[in-house]
Design a binder for these strands. Structure first.
Length: 278
DNA sequence: GCACATGTTGGTAA
DNA sequence: GTTACCAACATGTG
């Protein structure tokens, strides 16, 4: 479930708890999680210190003291846990870093879709995983956003999920953002009226900022570094609420498959634009 | 057991 | 470029 707010919560935890520590030892339980050179992965990072942790979109980047960087994508069910070594490893613990501070950083991933990718820090921006990402949804200006959206003819729901358009929004927040901005998920992007584009830009900031404040949404699996749930799911207005009354107008929340993803929305609150109103 | 659902994205084909 | 579909995988629900 980790989308931008969950990943942001995790990197803030990492910045507080593990930056500055040395990676003493690496245990790989499930090599397929490592992209690229599985054999040398542990060898190349043991002994290096973690100098910086940041994110780009949903990707977590660890910069190490030896000129290497680790990219981590949690995909659907990846989790990073920082715990004392005494704590028994839970099922699906695929990777363990022993840290000089005495704790362990563990990677747990039920569905095994996530990955760790080791690369030279100097080559990081040549990686397609990073270079293909669009701007950060919290940083893009309204004008920039207008420019991008006017060039896209696809359906707005799919566009919000497209990481090369904006990096970080996933299925939960796309549905919540569209509801807050009153836009139908099938709306073609380029014929949104100016006021709606402005509302959308605003809704993106509002939803993501508030979700970060509440440390993300724990729908089924997501937990933060300390194993704690987020609480933004309390504020979900449409996501996974098919058939329930809209919290704004009482109409029944509907669900559609759009681009193979389920989309929940209120047919009454969320309407289409035809680019006439300005 | 079966059918379908679940946070992501990468590859392929049209 | 867009779009649609299937793939990776484990588990839960009806």
């Amino acid at each position: 479930m980790p989308e931008l707010p969950e990943v942001e919560t995790i990197i803030r935890g990492l910045q507080q708890q593990i930056v500055g520590q040395k990676i003493v030892r690496v245990k790989v339980n499930l090599p397929k999680i490592i992209r690229g050179d599985k054999e040398r992965f542990a060898f190349l990072i043991e002994g290096a210190s973690i100098e910086e942790v940041r994110r780009q979109g949903k990707i977590i980047i660890f910069n190490l003291s030896n000129g290497m960087s680790i990219l981590v994508h949690l995909k659907l069910t990846g989790q990073l846990h920082c715990t004392l070594p005494e704590k028994p490893a839970i099922k699906h613990t695929h990777l363990v870093f022993d840290l000089s501070g005495g704790e362990e950083l563990r990677y747990v991933d039920l569905r095994q879709f996530g990955y760790f990718l080791l690369t030279k820090t100097s080559e990081i921006f040549h990686l397609p995983q990073l270079s293909a990402l669009g701007p950060d949804p919290l940083k893009i200006s309204l004008d920039e956003f207008k420019g991008l959206i006017s060039k896209r003819s696809g359906r707005i729901k799919s566009l919000l999920l497209n990481q090369s358009f904006l990096a970080g929004i996933g299925n939960i927040y796309a549905d919540e953002i569209l509801h807050l901005s009153g836009i139908h998920p099938l709306q073609p992007a380029h014929i949104l009226s100016d006021p709606k584009v402005k509302r959308l830009h605003q809704a993106i900031r509002e939803v993501l900022t508030k979700a970060i404040k509440y440390r993300g949404s724990s729908v089924s699996d997501y937990l933060d570094l300390a194993g704690q749930e987020g609480s933004y799911q309390r504020f979900h207005r449409v996501y996974q609420r098919e058939g329930k009354p809209c919290l704004t107008c009482q109409a029944k929340i509907a669900r559609l498959k759009i681009g193979n993803r389920s989309s929940c929305f209120c047919p009454n609150c969320q309407s289409y634009d035809h680019k006439k109103s300005l």
